[in-house]
C-alpha cells in the first residue's frame, strides 16, 4: 500500500511539475485552450488512478486507450498484431487482384483493335488464408460492352485515289467481321490469351460481348 501511495504521489507531482514547465513554452495562441483541455484530462487520469486500481480497471483503461488510438490511426488495432497481419494479407490479395485485372485489360486491349465501351472484369479468387489453394483463381468473367450499339456495315468505300493519305484517313481497310466487335471471335481469342497468360484452364474463363 505504501509503495502504491508513493507511486501515486510521485506521479502527480512529476506530472504537475512537468505541465508547469510546459505551460511556459506553449505557444501563446488559440492553441493554448486546446492544450489545456488535454492537460486537464491527463491530470484527471493521474488523480483517479488509485480508484481505478482499487476496482482493478487499470488494464481496461490501457486496453481502451490503445484500442481507441489504434482505431483512430486506422491501423485496425495497435494492440492486436494478428489483426494487422490479417489486414496486410487482405491488402496483398487486393494488390494481386488489381494486377490480374490490369493484365487482363492489357490482353483485351491487344486483341481488340477497334474501340469498345465499358469493360468489366470479375475475378473470383480463393481468399481464405487457411485454405491450401489460397490465391488460386476460381473463375474469370470478362464483360465487354460494345459502345456503338450497332454493327457498322462497311461495304462501299469511296477512296479518293488522287487525294493522298490525309483524305483517306477515315477509310477502314478491314473486313466487316474483323472490324466490328465480333462476339465469337473475341470469345475464342481473348479466352485463349487469358488462359495462357494466367496459366488457368479455359473452362473457368468466360468472355461476353454485350451490344
Amino acid at each position: 500500500m505504501a509503495e502504491f501511495l508513493r507511486n501515486w504521489i510521485i506521479n502527480i507531482t512529476v506530472i504537475i511539475i512537468f505541465i508547469m514547465l510546459l505551460e511556459t513554452i506553449i505557444p501563446s495562441s488559440s492553441m493554448k485552450r486546446y492544450i489545456n483541455v488535454i492537460v486537464g484530462l491527463m491530470i484527471i487520469v493521474v488523480v483517479i488512478k488509485p480508484f481505478v486500481l482499487v476496482k482493478d480497471y487499470a488494464e481496461d483503461f490501457h486496453l481502451k486507450f490503445l484500442e481507441t488510438s489504434g482505431y483512430i490511426e486506422q491501423s485496425g488495432a495497435a494492440a492486436d498484431s494478428e489483426r494487422i497481419v490479417e489486414f496486410q494479407q487482405k491488402m496483398a490479395v487486393e494488390v494481386f487482384e488489381n494486377n490480374l485485372k490490369r493484365l487482363i485489360e492489357r490482353i483485351i486491349d491487344e486483341n481488340i483493335d477497334s474501340e469498345y465501351g465499358e469493360l468489366s472484369i470479375n475475378l473470383w479468387l480463393e481468399k481464405d488464408f487457411e485454405s491450401k489453394d489460397f490465391g488460386r483463381i476460381k473463375s474469370v468473367e470478362v464483360i465487354i460492352n460494345n459502345n456503338s450499339g450497332e454493327v457498322i456495315e462497311v461495304d462501299k468505300i469511296k477512296i479518293a485515289v488522287n487525294e493522298g493519305a490525309e483524305a483517306n484517313k477515315n477509310v477502314i481497310n478491314k473486313d466487316k467481321v474483323e472490324y466490328n466487335l465480333n462476339n465469337s471471335r473475341i470469345r475464342s481469342d481473348i479466352r485463349d490469351e487469358i488462359s495462357k497468360a494466367l496459366g488457368i484452364s479455359e473452362s473457368i474463363v468466360s468472355v461476353e460481348v454485350r451490344q
Binding site: L41, V52, Y57, D60, F61, S69, I72
Partner: peptide, 27 residues
C-alpha cells in the same frame, strides 16, 4: 492550418477521453 492543428490535437485527446469515459461508466 490552425484549424487542422486543433483537430489533430483533439484526435490525440480522444483515446484518453474514451478510456476515461469507459472507466467512469464502469465505476
Amino acid at each position: 492550418v490552425e484549424f487542422a492543428g486543433k483537430v489533430l490535437i483533439m484526435v490525440i485527446a480522444i483515446p484518453i477521453l474514451a478510456a476515461l469515459m469507459d472507466i467512469m461508466i464502469k465505476i
